[in-house]
Nucleic acid binder design. Structure first.
Ligand SMILES: [Mn+2]
Ligand SMILES: [Mn+2]
Ligand SMILES: [Mn+2]
Ligand SMILES: [Mn+2]
Lengths: 154, 154
DNA sequence: ACGAATATGATGCCAAGGCTACACTTTCTT
DNA sequence: AAGAAAGTGTAGCCTTGGCATCATATTCGT
């Protein structure tokens, strides 16, 4: 049945770029973004643990994320591989400079997303809950619009 | 080092319910939601293909999603397993009653999310892009707030 | 100081969701 | 009516991110 084109285009690498404005392009970008979500949450959490005067040890991280420590350790391995963290065995996890920067961006974005949801009238618990997933999909452009929106309110 | 409690609680099933208001509970809920995202996008897309007068065949679906047809076929297998779709070999995919209902809900939510982003001042392309990922994390409670927000604007 | 309690790390298992490659079926075109 | 073109399905491979289990390291409490 030779009706439509073929489906197997070249499908190059496409590192992390803007995404075509086609439906397929949007889905591809959404998948790319999703693949960063876990790293973002870990970075944000590790920074928070450090900021709260504590250490970021696998068990702490695991408990806060609701996963087993084995799962956390595997994710930490990925963080290290991606150059976002280092770890001293039995002594906890530390963010690299790049990791710190990611954490800072992610935290700011998280707070802004919650703030916008609240401003729209979303109840506090739902805002906190939904923001945990939504945040990762909020692009810089959208984030700027969020900031302008909040500024316009006060 | 026996400082903090243990991390391996019972961790029961937790089918799809409200989620504790703890940080771990929020992350758990976000993971549950994410595991539905793929099914939601497929259901929405299949309904759209049918609505647009066409058939929903693996290659159509794959092209629209930006994946290979093999990937689409695997996802369709999961849709069938979950009771959301049926398929007649070489004749396309069809949503069950439950699948149709899911598709309708997902489509309405998608549209509302885009509308809210636009209302906040997000440029059209970014709104379309970000909504593709955000939509899956918007709870019913939040969706209601979105509807009220839009109503209040006009 | 030493045993108990806890944390850590390693390993192996699983399912999801990508991919390529290849065989088969259907449809189109001549 | 073939033969070519396109779609479909299957199989096998990979990575991610869950899990449980076990061995080892550290720290606490007495
Ligand atoms: Mn998050
Ligand atoms: Mn967050
Ligand atoms: Mn989507
Ligand atoms: Mn959608």
């Amino acid at each position: 049945m030779p009706r439509r084109p073929a489906d197997a285009q070249q499908r190059q690498a496409a590192p992390n770029l803007p995404a075509e404005p086609t439906q397929a392009g949007r889905f591809e970008q959404a998948r790319r973004v999703q693949s960063m979500a876990l790293l973002e949450d870990y970075a944000e959490l590790i920074a928070d643990l450090h900021a709260t005067g504590g250490e970021a040890r696998p068990t702490d991280i695991a408990r806060r994320l609701g996963v087993t420590h084995a799962t956390a350790i595997k994710a930490i391995t990925r963080l290290k591989r991606e150059g976002l963290a280092t770890a001293r065995p039995y002594r906890g996890v530390f963010l690299t400079e790049e990791g710190e920067q990611l954490a800072a961006r992610v935290k700011a974005r998280h707070l802004l997303v919650v703030e916008v949801l609240r401003a729209i009238g979303v109840p506090p618990d739902a805002a906190e809950q939904d923001a945990e997933g939504i945040e990762h999909h909020v692009s810089d452009i959208t984030l700027q619009a969020f900031a302008r929106f909040l500024k316009g309110l006060k």
